[in-house]
Design a protein around this nucleic acid. Structure first.
Lengths: 141, 141
DNA sequence: TTCCTTGCAAAACTTTTGCATTAAA
DNA sequence: TTTAATGCAAAAGTTTTGCAAGGAA
């Protein structure tokens, strides 16, 4: 590689963090790489377990702090689908969700699959910041 | 009142519990009376505080047990609008919600105010058990 | 150096549970 | 009297926080 100057491998995740103004530390890059590798829904505990299983040295506090940081910067989206825990969605484009009550699974529903022909006007002095739609599913029959 | 037989004042809440097959104990009747007096959204902690402020003798465990019991019997509905805690909705008729991000307030949206002209087909082997719609509101301007 | 990040442990919260006591039928 | 519900305290689960140590700029 370049002569003289030390070179640092720069991954996609790393660039993405830098572009958001987030310092790409080792732990942050690992979380970003895991979460942003594909559209998915993970809990903090799942992320911690997954990273540690891969040999990463990372604490629970850092996972939570990092997820909150990412969410503040719009890199991920925090979902409240059931009361039990938060789910972090790596897909930040507008979309909705199926929630399978049997398995607990979350499935993305693209925006074009849902059309509203009527929506209530927001109360005076307010405007719509977002619409969360969760379609609960149960086993048929 | 009636000669000989002891009489018990029977309130609307009491009858409603009995009709559901729930034994109308003093604590349950107080919770039902508070919650079902009007359509509203309350947390377990709010219910506990409110009842105790009114002089009721009731424990936190009983509030949670009772709310879960009511929800199982379809007397109230448990909502997950923010990750922080559960909200209990005394309106069990189908409806949606505004969620004011500034104040945290929840406002009912009647079904006729929302119309879907397009909804995704549920995955094979599943059927729609319910649709939760939360319209998040922020301050305008 | 200086500032930011991490890890650990403890704390903060919400909700559930075990068990002795009390109340309801 | 027999069963079910309550209260209390402790436990459990998730998330946050304080602080010393470590790492980047």
């Amino acid at each position: 590689m370049g002569s003289g100057s030390a070179s640092v491998a720069t991954t996609t995740s790393e660039r993405r963090l830098t572009r958001c103004g987030i310092r790409p530390t080792a732990q942050r890059v690992r979380i970003a790489t895991l979460l942003l590798s594909a559209p998915q829904h993970l809990s903090a505990e799942q992320i911690l377990a997954n990273l540690r299983a891969c040999g990463a040295r990372i604490s629970k506090a850092t996972v939570y702090n990092t997820l909150n940081l990412f969410a503040e910067h719009g890199l991920i989206r925090q979902l409240s689908v059931d009361g039990s825990r938060a789910w972090f969605d790596s897909n930040v484009d507008p979309h909705y969700h199926f929630h399978d009550l049997t398995s607990g699974a979350l499935i993305d529903v693209p925006v074009p699959e849902v059309e509203f022909s009527r929506l209530p006007a927001p109360p005076p002095g307010t405007e719509v910041a977002g619409i969360d739609l969760v379609i609960r599913l149960r086993k048929k029959l």
